[in-house]
Simulated assay, not measured.
Amino acid sequence: MKNHGVVHSNAMLRPWLLLIGFISLFGAGYLWVNSAPWTLATLKSFADARAIHDVQTRPDRVGFLLSKDPALLKAVAWSKTGSVLYPGPATYAPTRFDLSLQELEELTHLTSEDFPASWSNYDRDGNELLYCQPAPRICLIYDRSALQNALDVSLDGVNWGVMGLLAGMGLLSFFLFWRRGTAAQPHDQLVLLPKQHSARRGTLEVALTPRDFRLLEFLQMKQGEVVTKDELYDAGWGRDFMPNSRALDQHMINLRKKLDPDKSRSPVIETVRGVGYRLLD
């Protein structure tokens, strides 16, 4: 019954694997397309960071850059040694562009270690967005609404973790779909060779005993029909043999091992509980 379940699970699972693969990759693709606005936002923020970096030792010029961009609310720039260049302790910054000492300390701590350029919500409601990059080391705070208007896009959040998970699930589903499909390809089908008194499954050729051959030949003649144990006893042992259930079952176990010694092929003999056996291919 175990082999019966394996074969039928393959047939039932393959359409589901295909469906899951398509849905997962479609979902990942949808998230990827919706990440394009963030790419535009990153390009703008990188350009803004470069412009501020070029004049970071001149607070008046930094203030001018901030004042002419409605989307850019605040900026913090650090030197290569880690000291805050803008807004520094003695730097005058208009109220709109000022940061509290606590905010400066939090941003300094956030960027004190190696980190990738990234976006995050700066306030609880997500009305302000924080962009930080390591080289040059700068953090920029944007007004979400103004930034969306400037770029003419919608900056809805893109969950990169979910997108990666969906893409991975899709690829895994297609891989399993392919594996389950190739598991029962013709190169694994059973071919009886009467002259050699053997059987072939792909590159594997198995020497058979006379009883092995008679049983397989009889199962193959039935073309996938269920064959009773009594019929198999008659075919393998003869009508004068007194049936012993364990003798046939043990012989089938050994025959399965011969036809798939490394358990790398699809099952070829199915046990039909309470009735007998059936040749699957």
Rank of each mutant, 00 (worst) to 15 (best):
I253Y: 04
F174A: 03
W119S: 01
L13W: 05
L73D: 09
S173M: 08
N121Q: 10
P94Y: 03
T182Y: 06
H4G: 08
I138Q: 14
F177E: 01
R144A: 15
E225D: 14
T42V: 03
L279M: 13
V158P: 11
C132V: 13
A247H: 07
I52R: 00
P94I: 05
V226I: 13
G161E: 15
L255H: 04
A167R: 02
R256T: 04
G27R: 13
N149P: 01
G276E: 01
R200Y: 14
A183S: 12
R239E: 10
P87C: 10
G161L: 15
K80R: 13
A36K: 07
M163V: 14
N149E: 12
G157L: 14
L208Q: 00
H197S: 11
M252K: 05
A167H: 01
R124C: 08
L101H: 09
L219Y: 01
R96N: 10
E270I: 02
S112D: 14
I253K: 07
F97R: 00
T57W: 13
H53L: 09
G202F: 11
S45E: 08
E103Q: 11
D125R: 15
S9M: 07
L129E: 00
S35Q: 12
H8L: 07
Q102Y: 07
A51C: 08
L18K: 02
R137F: 09
P243G: 01
W38C: 03
G164N: 12
W178N: 04
G170W: 00
L31W: 12
A184W: 02
F115N: 08
V84R: 02
D212K: 07
V272C: 02
K257A: 12
K222W: 11
P70E: 09
M221D: 09
P261F: 06
P267V: 04
L280Q: 13
F97Q: 00
L140T: 02
L110A: 15
L19E: 02
L147P: 14
L279E: 11
N3D: 04
D98A: 12
L85H: 09
C132F: 08
L13G: 04
A77S: 12
A28Y: 02
S118I: 11
L19H: 01
V7Q: 04
I269V: 06
H251L: 02
M163S: 15
L190P: 11
R14I: 07
G168D: 07
L19N: 03
K44G: 06
H197D: 11
G82V: 00
Q189N: 13
A11G: 06
T57I: 08
